[in-house]
Amino acid sequence: MRTVVADQLAEGAKAWHWPSGWGARLAQCMPIWTAKSDDLLERRILPSEHLKQALLEAAGRAINMGKPLDLGVFLFAFVHDRIGIAASALEEHGLDRHRLACRIAHGAAMDGAERDDALAPGIDEARLVILNDDYTRMAFVVEVLESVLGMPPDQAQACMMQIHHEGRADCGVFPLAIARAKVEEVLALARERCEPLRTSLANA
């Protein structure tokens, strides 16, 4: 958690234009200093109702995903839960919960959009592809397919299962401008719900 937050702090510090990148280095080192002081002073997180709730949610999410209770699952639950103590602290410090969720889910700082540089120049249409991950809720994927891409419920459910089992699915061919607009609409909803759903555009 400290490393992920440190990366975001360092990126934000670059925008402050502190001399010689001093702010970025400070932001990267601060969580390390804090961790060391926690050990030296024997500081521990005290039990709280928020923490218990977040732990229960993490356990439930892991069971639903069929995954072991690893650090990534717990960390994602903390970030995803808007009323959790950790998520609240992140927002109070101006950190982007959705971006942190994507970092946890995908292992890199990204906002869920894949680059579409591979699109052939001059094309008029593109395929919108949705990619699988271990953290986005299935119900949210179905909601996106229905509300943004206009699929009927049965087709949306079948498409979601294809994404889940095959790792990706083509979700429609659209004029290029409309395809890009739909990608932005999907990502806007994902940011609002803090879901790390990924999309991509491919040649039609």
Rank of each mutant, 00 (worst) to 15 (best):
V4M: 05
V5S: 04
A13E: 05
P19E: 07
S20P: 00
A24G: 11
R25F: 01
L26K: 11
C29F: 11
C29W: 06
M30G: 02
P31M: 05
T34Q: 10
K36F: 09
D39W: 03
L41D: 06
L46F: 07
S48I: 01
E49L: 14
L51E: 08
Q53H: 12
L55E: 14
L55P: 00
L55C: 09
A58C: 12
A58G: 14
R61K: 11
N64L: 13
M65F: 00
G66Y: 13
L69I: 11
L71I: 15
L71A: 15
V73I: 09
V79M: 03
G84C: 03
I85L: 03
A86V: 14
E92P: 00
G94A: 13
R97E: 05
R99I: 11
A108C: 01
A109C: 00
A109P: 03
D111H: 01
E114N: 03
D117E: 11
A118M: 14
L119Q: 09
G122I: 09
A126V: 13
A126R: 10
L131N: 14
D133Q: 07
D134R: 07
D134M: 06
A139D: 15
A139K: 10
E143F: 02
L149F: 04
M151G: 00
M151T: 02
P152A: 12
D154K: 15
D170N: 14
A188G: 13
L197V: 15
R198A: 15
T199E: 01
A202G: 03
A202S: 05
